[in-house]
Design a protein around this nucleic acid. Structure first.
Lengths: 398, 398
DNA sequence: CATTACTTAATAAACTTAATTAAATAATTT
DNA sequence: AAATTATTTAATTAAGTTTATTAAGTAATG
């Protein structure tokens, strides 16, 4: 409840250690102590705690690996975030696909791949049914929590989807309750003296997709803790990370950069308003503009990507990019970050597009003279983001 | 250096107590303990600490004041933030006026008034000279710090003004060093055995004006910890407070909502760019638009205010308000707050203007359906903001 | 190769800070 | 005087620190 109790110190330190490991990979206790500014003793104790809880593991000594030259002294044991057994279920609910995986306590590292993926059905009951069919195959027992990323506007504490223009059934759905009904993973082996029960339903935590993406990006490059992430998919989202923290109040509504109105734009948006930037810059909007400019071309995303690769940034696209630039600069100015990270559709269109956007942003952002604004693309790291959110549940539960 | 040491707990708790007192006025130790969720013992100890440091004081028992009926038991001693002797110097450097005051450890409460005010001279040396002339009259000895609010873009940690379109000399000035040369307040009385020395120059802390305003607003209504503050003066600034925290990364540039570009606006901005919203919506921009619409009218701020009171929101003003609305909605969408607080020029134009702005914002903000966005005006509380910033220096010094 | 010196890692012991709970004391009202 | 609430005192606990010790390596040397 209150804030200033001794246990908070331990949680703070445990969390710092886990985040460091998540970010920079295995390290010895001594390394951790040095980097985090804690004493070696405390670091050792916290690490021991985390080892006992199964959150960390000790790497087996590798006699083969030669130490760096000039490295003297007793070598430290490398510890790392335990990856087995899986303790979390992550569920990415997307407009086109649903992805499902059991994750170790501290999330997947790169290249782990997804266990299960299926096309998202068009309504809730069908989705739940498909999910149940696949859930049985999960390699998980006694999951700690289920982390669910959802596109649209999400009231995370309440577990409600407030607005989902592309998956309307979500708005009426009580996702946490629905998901309680799913049986996750293989049943626990029958313990002596009690019924052979399935794993109890884990608590469900909703995460707004754009927030998951931002957390993932932050985890991937934790040294770069200041950026504006802009994602383009069926919609458009934007989230600000500053000082290594994802900016968002306790209010449910954030990250909805896509619904910034653009003067002179009269397209209807799924949110009910008119003129939102995402009607121009997200996938459907780009396709619509493309079709308008080239009615004879096939109206498909692959065709558009190909077209842009060949023909470069045509005026209709340039105009959209300039409008995106204005919206991005607005966000930059308020919070004071210098890096813009683009993911999704606009990133797929290639470096020329990114370059034009970058030029626009650099031209409009007021502090061009103090150090250029950077505009880079990155892959989506939704999974890593969910894992990071999950980590908090393990290490720093309320 | 590191984060998780025992002393941090004490600082956290001391700060929580001070902020509570700053926000809600005097309270007993028992009240504080209950509200903050700390034990009575801890609360007592922290309060004793703060009393010993002179940051808190005990209110004299008032036999006359009748207790609330049904209040049994030993009455608690009311403690409050000490107001004497002054320990801080606050300095508001404005385009038009400079204001100077000595504040008690925990800032002024309402209606305290300013001790000294003078028109800001046109260059640094003149300003420093005027400042020195007035500084002698300050009722302060041994000031802890000098809190200085500055309009424009400020690198707070470095103590540099990066951009100040309206006071160009600031950009080259090393304010902290300049202010070291000023002798503050009356010299200490000659102590036996040492020279009769003036007070040593206190450390100087720069605060971006818009941040000071936001902190002040937050301190004034701490229960309302989520808002976007938009201030209109010679320029325009915007700052986001969410969850009771002022959002800003470690980077110096933030709050510069005024430099969001508006498509189709070709006015040159003092920042060097073209089309910034502040060329339309800040005081000079409003006056320019007014003069354009009514060339025969006197081009002065009082005349404009009067005109708007009489003639209401004319098209030229409505258009500007809609453009401001777009910029505001952009900021709202990203960070997810519901209250927009307007201070300065636009607030002075009266409730009709605020109403139009409010309508625009409500229409454009995507979540009109989840609960109306509020748009209210408030007085500037720069002084209280500086006081809050100062409080952090006393209670939670690094 | 075996031994010794040196370096760094990890742990143990003693101590410090700041929280906690439990009990005692103080100041009012009924 | 009894009840009630506020504050303080004393003892305990949690989690940090420093200092000292032990462990596990490399480097130098006979």
């Amino acid at each position: 409840m209150s804030i200033g109790q001794p246990i908070h110190l331990r949680r703070l330190n445990a969390r710092a250690i886990c985040q460091r490991l998540l970010a920079h990979g295995p390290a010895s206790r001594a390394d951790l102590a040095k980097v985090l500014g804690l004493s070696a003793v405390t670091t050792g104790k916290v690490v021991d705690d985390l080892l006992a809880q199964g959150i960390l593991q000790i790497a087996p000594a590798d006699k083969e690996a030669p130490r760096k030259t000039n490295e003297l002294g007793r070598p430290g044991q490398q510890v790392f975030l335990a990856r087995t057994p899986p303790r979390f279920i992550t569920l990415q609910l997307g407009v086109r696909h649903t992805r499902l995986a059991a994750l170790p306590a501290a999330g997947p590292l790169a290249g782990e791949g997804w266990l299960i993926q299926f096309p998202t059905p068009a309504d809730g009951p069908a989705w739940l049914k498909a999910l149940q069919a696949h859930a049985d195959n999960l390699q998980v027992t006694d999951p700690i929590a289920l982390m669910l990323s959802v596109p649209g506007v999400v009231d995370e504490p309440a577990g409600r989807v407030l607005l989902s223009p592309n998956l309307h059934w979500l708005e009426a759905a009580d996702l946490p309750r629905m998901l309680q009904e799913v049986t996750w993973g293989t049943p626990s082996p029958p313990a002596p003296g009690r019924q052979n029960a399935a794993s109890p339903a884990p608590p469900v935590h909703l995460v707004q997709e754009i927030r998951a993406l931002a957390l993932g990006q932050l985890a991937a490059e934790p040294a770069e803790g200041d950026f504006l992430l802009v994602d383009f998919g069926q919609g458009m989202g934007g989230a600000v990370v500053a000082g290594g923290r994802l900016m968002a109040g306790p209010l449910p509504l954030s990250g909805e950069l896509g619904h910034t109105p653009v003067l002179g734009n009269h397209r209807k948006c799924g949110c009910g308003a008119t003129g939102c930037i995402e009607t121009l810059a997200a996938r459907p909007g780009l396709l619509a503009s493309f079709a308008q400019a080239h009615p004879q071309q096939e109206r498909s995303w692959p065709r558009l990507v190909e077209w842009v690769q060949v023909n470069g940034v045509e005026p209709w696209l340039r105009q959209t990019l300039e409008q995106v630039g204005v919206v991005v600069v607005g966000a930059l100015n308020v919070v004071g970050v210098r890096r813009v990270i683009v993911t999704g559709a606009l990133a797929e269109l290639g470096s020329q597009v990114l370059e034009v956007l970058s030029q626009t942003v650099k031209r409009s952002a007021m502090w061009g003279r103090f150090g250029a604004v950077e505009c880079v693309s990155a892959p989506r790291r939704r999974a890593l983001g969910l894992a990071t959110a999950a980590l908090d549940r393990v290490v720093a539960p309320e």
